[in-house]
Design a protein around this nucleic acid. Structure first.
Lengths: 244, 244
DNA sequence: TTACTGCGGATTTTCGAAATAATCAAACCT
DNA sequence: AGGTTTGATTATTTCGAAAATCCGCAGTAA
């Protein structure tokens, strides 16, 4: 009823999901902190069931972890996880790039240039602090997606997107400490050029470096925020299929 | 407390989740069919909320798809998805194998041999129809996991496990038509030998072939069950971050 | 002191009814 | 007749209370 400015057809759970995701990525909800239903119910003004729905989906995205019958936690951050995440992203992104270059058509190239242009223009308009803007983050995400959208593998793209979002939280953690972000815009342009030139090997290497250098940047500026000794135990590994 | 033979600490949602997963993999719940709450509520004897919880988690595993406010569907199967899934699995599995061989220790080797032995013994005991047994399927899963358990990447292992489960449904679809399964036991032994010998390249190629040949087998015997023209539209791709 | 046991408060999980949204068909207008 | 709106039916989503579970603490015994 009173919902005035919602995209229409948006469920309340979907709305809460988006808000919680945003709050987790921005660290308004601190990594490793316990998510109590009563607290969240007041904060987001929804009921238990709706919360549970949103929480479940966030678990799927790896931004929240479920602890048996002991509730939910904001997924902890750690140096170990960041490095692991980075390695997996490089593997996936290299393959996406290769496939997209093999399979992409003219439309794909045009979409890349359009996405770059939008991101680039907003960057100029916002000036030095563009990296703090949610809008820029969205266009940045769209640009990187456009590079690989033609890869033809829905499964790979879905995995890629989830990893990208998790990495986004780490990037965001360091950006709050770094008034001057490094010149990613130049890197983006180079990547775009090599992708459209169908230079697979170079494009892969550039993306690889792009990801790893960002990670190194995060480690340099934000690793003091990570959980101490945060190794594997902070992340439950998949059940070994409950042997027997 | 009256729960006599449950592993203790199992939530009802977790129980329903396991049963539904089993029913989807065995195709008792047909691919592409609509999952109506009222029907499921009777079938599994739980309430709406509990169902919703289980459904959400199955969406995360890719065995169920959610359609906005129009309910849930058993994830459709298609030739396109099977081929895509296979390609992604090969990518992931090759990397897992490489890392595990680089990082594995004696304990890891011992676990592989133990897992193989259990699977092998059960196979002998069950005879020709071992591939229909859920127990064998579990030991098979454990064996394949043991090969890569030492890879050191929780993120990669989690992705791998989800893909493995989805592929399991396809394998299961063809096994019901094939009274004589091909000699996978020989392949398993060869893979184990090459992995323990730390022969990375050969081990990767063997696993690659193992996966692809299984897929070809499924296509040969069960592709007539797949959705017609089941291309990308049967699987929603990740939202382009809802630009704007 | 240390380990075990049982109680009390706090938190999560489950339930079924109420509210909301989608579907389908008959009646209506063009 | 073809296409659109309206209204009844069905299914999904949301709600908050009730049941089950967990956690800390006090009391007791070894």
């Amino acid at each position: 009823m009173g919902n005035s400015l919602k995209p229409a057809g948006e469920t309340r759970a979907g709305d809460v999901l988006a808000r919680m995701r945003s709050d987790i990525i921005s660290c308004a909800l601190k990594p490793g902190s316990k998510l109590r239903f009563e607290t969240l119910r007041e904060l987001y003004e929804v009921s238990f069931s709706t919360l549970r729905e949103a929480l479940s989906r966030l678990v799927a995205e790896g931004l929240v972890v479920a602890e048996g019958q002991r509730g939910f936690l904001v997924a902890p951050v750690s140096l170990f996880d960041l490095n692991d995440l980075t390695d997996v992203r490089v593997l996936v992104e290299r393959q996406c790039i290769k496939l997209a270059i093999d399979r992409g058509d003219d439309r794909w190239e045009a979409d890349i240039m359009a996405a770059f242009h939008r991101m680039d223009r907003l960057q100029s308009r916002l000036g030095a602090s563009y990296y703090l803007s949610d809008e820029w983050a969205t266009l940045h995400s769209v640009f990187h997606l456009s590079l690989v959208a033609a890869c033809g593998s829905p499964n790979l793209l879905e995995i890629r997107q989830k990893l990208f979002e998790r990495a986004h939280r780490y990037r965001r953690m360091s950006s709050q400490f770094r008034p001057q972000w490094r010149a990613k815009d130049v890197e983006h342009k180079m990547i775009m050029d090599r992708v459209i030139a169908r230079d697979t090997a170079t494009a892969q290497d550039l993306v690889d470096r792009h990801i790893r250098e960002t990670t190194e940047n995060v480690i340099a500026h934000a690793s003091h925020l990570f959980a101490q000794g945060g190794t594997a135990d902070a992340f439950r590994r998949p059940d070994p299929v409950a042997a027997e």
